[in-house]
Each structure stands twice: as structure tokens, then as C-alpha cells.
Amino acid sequence: MSSAPRFQILHLHGGEARLDFGGRTHNIKVLSIANVAISLPDLVSCLKYFPLLMSLTISASLSQRNILPPDVPAFIELPNLRHLKLAHSGEEDPCLLFDRLLLPALKSLSLFMIVARTDWPYLKSFLERSRPPLKFLSLNGVPINETTLVECISYIPILTKLFVISIHCTDVKVEALTLVKSKNRLCPLLETLVFDAAGCSPSAIIKMILSRRKSPGYTNFTTRKALKYDSLGRFKLNTICSNPEIAERTKDGLLLH
């Protein structure tokens, strides 16, 4: 790494890799790790050498070893990071990574993981700590309960796209996303919503959709946006499409799937 100080893009794909940073920081702005045998402590350690990082993609089975090197700081701040994508299918928990990341400029976050937990509060503490201007959030298989999920999205008010996949949802989440004037309104700029609503009631879905669509004659949309696309997974659409107000919204441009 020290012999190529002008490198800005680094892709590690396949096999094993051991990086030697020469004890100094580097100008890498894009880092992609896929199908590489790398431990979570090594990954956490190497991030401190990339202060200019703007995009980080990790698609690998991370081993944890439970012990971090003593020189790893309590928080690793990457002030320029805009995009983070983590696809982790190993048995270890990547919580050590999220316990240390501080990403105040993050705009998109995509997480796929298989972890033996009933809840994963590390995302909540990460968002509370970083308060990023997140616009895109995708959670696939993340073991997170609805209370934690609702608190997570309360820290990202300008979110425009939310994907919640392979996570059980009930009316708790739907009611939290329903815009009610007398309550705090979560994600008023949300335009795309994807989740499995099989465990939700038709009445709650209808109320949420109508609250996020522009009512006839209502033009003051400066502080919120209308929901444009709503994918409800295994939810039976015929239970709500017969509703005349929902039918009116679909004619007006709302896409239901």
C-alpha cells in the first residue's frame, strides 16, 4: 500500500489478503471486499487507515476472534463515507464493527446478515451516535424486533427508501409509519416502502397508505412527500384494493405490489 500512495480504489476479491499499511493513512476512497477470508478485528483495524473513504462494500464471511487489537480506537470516524453495504453470512456477529463506527455523512446503508439473535440493538446505537443524513436503508434478515426498528428510523428523518426484508412486521411498525398530526411523524419524506405485511391488518395498512398520500386539494407538501411505491410481500392486496380511497390513490399514481 505504501508503494502506491495515489491509489483511491481498492477491490479485494477472492482468496486471502493481508494488508500492510506501513503505519500511515492512505487515500483510498472506495473499498470493496468480497469472498475474502478476513477477520473482523483486521477489518476494524484497517478502516482507521482510510479517513477519506466514501464507499465501503463488504461481502464476506467475517471471523470475529472476540478480541480487538489494543490500538483500535473506541470510535472509528469516517466523515466522508456515503455508502455502506454489508452482506455477512458467517456465524460470527459483526457487532464489534458497528460498536465503533461513526458515520455522520452516510446516505445509504444496506445490511444482510444471518445472526443467532432475537434482536440486534447495535444498529440503533450506531444511528443514534452518528445521526446520518440517511436516505436509503435496506435490512435483509437482520434480527431486529419492531420496537428497535421503530427507534432506528426515528433517527433518520429524511429517509426516502426503506426496505425491510425477511423481518416479521405487525401493526406496531405500520402504525409507527402512519402520519398523524398529533404525534411525532416518522420519515415524512418516505417514497418507497418494501416490507412483508402478512402479519398486519388491512385497516392499519389502509390508514398508513392514506396518511402518506396527497389528499385532494392539499398542496402544502413542502415538509413531506407522497408515498409512490409500496410492496407488501405476502399481504393479500385484494383486502385493501376494494377500498374506494385506495383505488383512487392507485389511479393517482400509487404503485402497490
Rank of each mutant, 00 (worst) to 15 (best):
S138P: 00
R117S: 12
L186I: 07
L190Q: 07
P94I: 09
L137R: 00
L106F: 05
W120V: 00
E191V: 09
R131P: 12
L123E: 01
L162W: 03
S130Y: 07
L96Q: 14
L190C: 08
A116L: 13
A176K: 06
S154G: 13
L101M: 11
R100L: 06
V150K: 08
L162N: 02
V142N: 01
P132I: 00
M113Q: 14
E175N: 12
R129C: 09
P104T: 03
E191Q: 15
D196N: 15
K183P: 03
C187Q: 02
L97S: 04
L189W: 14
S166H: 06
A198C: 15
P133W: 02
L106Q: 02
V150R: 09
R117P: 04
W120R: 10
D196W: 05
I167M: 13
H88R: 06
R129H: 13
F163W: 07
S110D: 13
E146A: 11
L123F: 12
P133E: 07
S130Q: 05
G90Y: 08
P157L: 07
Y155Q: 07
V194R: 11
R185A: 09
L179H: 10
S110Y: 11
L189T: 08
D196Y: 02
S130G: 04
R185N: 11
G199Q: 06
L103K: 03
P143H: 04
D171R: 08
N184I: 12
S154M: 08
I144M: 14
I153L: 08
D196P: 02
P132Y: 07
V174S: 09
Y155M: 04
N184T: 14
F112W: 08
A105I: 02
L123M: 13
R100A: 03
P94C: 07
K181E: 15
L109P: 03
R117L: 13
R129Y: 12
L97P: 05
L139G: 01
A197R: 04
P132S: 10
E191I: 07
C95S: 15
C152Q: 03
G90K: 04
S182R: 15
P143N: 10
D93R: 01
R131C: 14
K124G: 09
P104K: 01
G141L: 02
T118R: 11
H168T: 10
R129S: 06
T118H: 12
R100M: 07
D99L: 13
P133I: 04
S125C: 09
L103Q: 05
I153K: 00
C200G: 06
S138A: 13
F136G: 09
I156L: 10
F136H: 15
D99G: 14
I144S: 05
L149D: 03
E92L: 09
V174L: 12
P143R: 05
L179S: 12
C169P: 07
V174Q: 08
P133Q: 08
K173P: 09
S89H: 14
C200Q: 04
N140G: 04
E191F: 09
F163V: 10
L123Q: 04
P157T: 11
S138T: 13
Y155L: 05
S108Y: 01
S138I: 12
G90Q: 08
